[in-house]
């Protein structure tokens, strides 16, 4: 009791400052290594910063402020880079993330539902093994799939060859998965050609993506009370009706955040793209993040790269606002 009184009698100012004391270490460090660089980035983005300015940075006598030139160059495609069109990359980036999530979530749910069938043999074994793609680090997945899609020695062409032999075609399959520029389905996505490399990446990322969705769906499935299905069956609902009217609505609250999470991860999926195609062929599979990396790592145009990163920031902000709205909309739906 004595101690408690002591606490209350402590000066008001000291108590008001206490939350800030706890913030000091983090903000001190972030101030130097996170916030200062972010501001520095914005400044740099208005300059022609290149390798020759590395030594002196902003104090460099030849460093010029070029205003919005970097931004204008990026948007108008005036950068001296082959095959670069900002809006095509942006469109492809959105398409890439959307098309992945639209495949992963339904596949994950369907497989989870299938594995939930009562009386299915080896259910536990399947569940344990299907999780393996989640367990392997994506960086390894990306390099392994890069070699699987190798046009000369890759396992995918070899697999297709053995399948086509079964059907009587004896010629070895020789698809140029990662280098063929001609899109297999022309005009599928207006404005951005989807090359064979896109489909190769889709296959690799599908392998990587659906199991996590399946894990989440399994967890949500098991929390659906069985009585609901029994009641529906008594009322004469067919299995399909049960799936549509019980399973789907009750899974939505769990799957929506998962889909949003998947979308944001896929939107900036640097590793898979960089390792498998490097953005090629002819920048057809370039994402915003891989192009930004090319700018800084290979071209060393630091000013342009900084401007590009600032643009990415605003794209990410827009994505966040959209996904937030979607999550909120489904939350109110599930609560209704």
């Amino acid at each position: 009791m004595e101690l408690a009184n002591k606490k209350i009698s402590g000066t008001k100012i000291k108590r008001n400052l206490l939350p800030y004391y706890y913030l000091v270490p983090a903000f001190l460090i972030m101030g130097v290594i996170t916030f200062y660089p972010l501001i520095y980035q914005v400044i740099i983005s208005f300059t022609n910063f290149e390798t020759k300015h590395l030594l002196l940075g902003l104090n460099s006598p030849e460093l010029k402020f070029v205003g919005l030139k970097n931004y204008i160059d990026i948007f108008t495609g005036a950068l001296p880079v082959e095959n670069f069109n900002f809006f095509r990359v942006l469109e492809f980036n959105f398409w890439w993330a959307l098309s992945n999530v639209f495949l992963h979530v339904p596949a994950g749910v369907l497989i989870a539902v299938m594995l939930n069938t009562e009386g299915l043999w080896l259910k536990k074994l399947y569940r344990a093994l299907y999780i393996l793609p989640v367990v392997v680090p994506p960086i390894v997945v990306a390099t392994v799939w890069r070699n699987i899609f190798d046009e000369q020695y890759g396992a995918m062409n070899q697999l297709l060859t053995s399948i086509s032999i079964l059907f009587g075609h004896l010629d070895p399959v020789h698809l140029r998965w990662l280098t063929e520029y001609k899109p297999p389905i022309p005009g599928f996505l207006p404005g951005a050609p989807l090359t064979l490399a896109y489909y190769a990446m889709m296959i690799a990322n599908f392998w990587l993506g659906w199991p996590l969705m399946s894990v989440i769906a399994t967890g949500a499935l098991q929390s659906i009370p069985k009585d609901l299905y029994e009641a529906a069956a008594i009322d004469g609902a067919t299995g399909f009706q049960q799936f549509r009217n019980i399973t789907i609505p009750l899974l939505t609250p769990a799957m929506m955040p998962a889909a949003v999470y998947g979308f944001t991860i896929t939107f900036n999926l640097f590793g898979l793209v960089f390792f498998m195609t490097g953005g090629g062929p002819a920048r057809s599979t370039e994402l915003l993040v891989t192009f930004a990396y090319n700018l800084v790592r290979n071209l060393r145009w630091f000013g342009v790269a900084a401007a590009f990163a600032v643009i990415i920031f605003f794209v990410a902000l827009v994505v966040l606002l959209i996904t937030n709205r979607i999550t909120r909309a489904t939350q109110s739906y599930s609560e209704a």
């Binding site: 660089p37 972010l38 520095y40 740099i44 993040v289 891989t290 990163a309 990410a316």
Partner: peptide, 16 residues
């Protein structure tokens, strides 16, 4: 900073 993918912070940190 969470909105910035890793690539986004790389340039200024490299320079600094």
């Amino acid at each position: 900073p969470l909105l910035m993918p890793g690539v986004g912070l790389a340039t200024p940190l490299y320079l600094l």
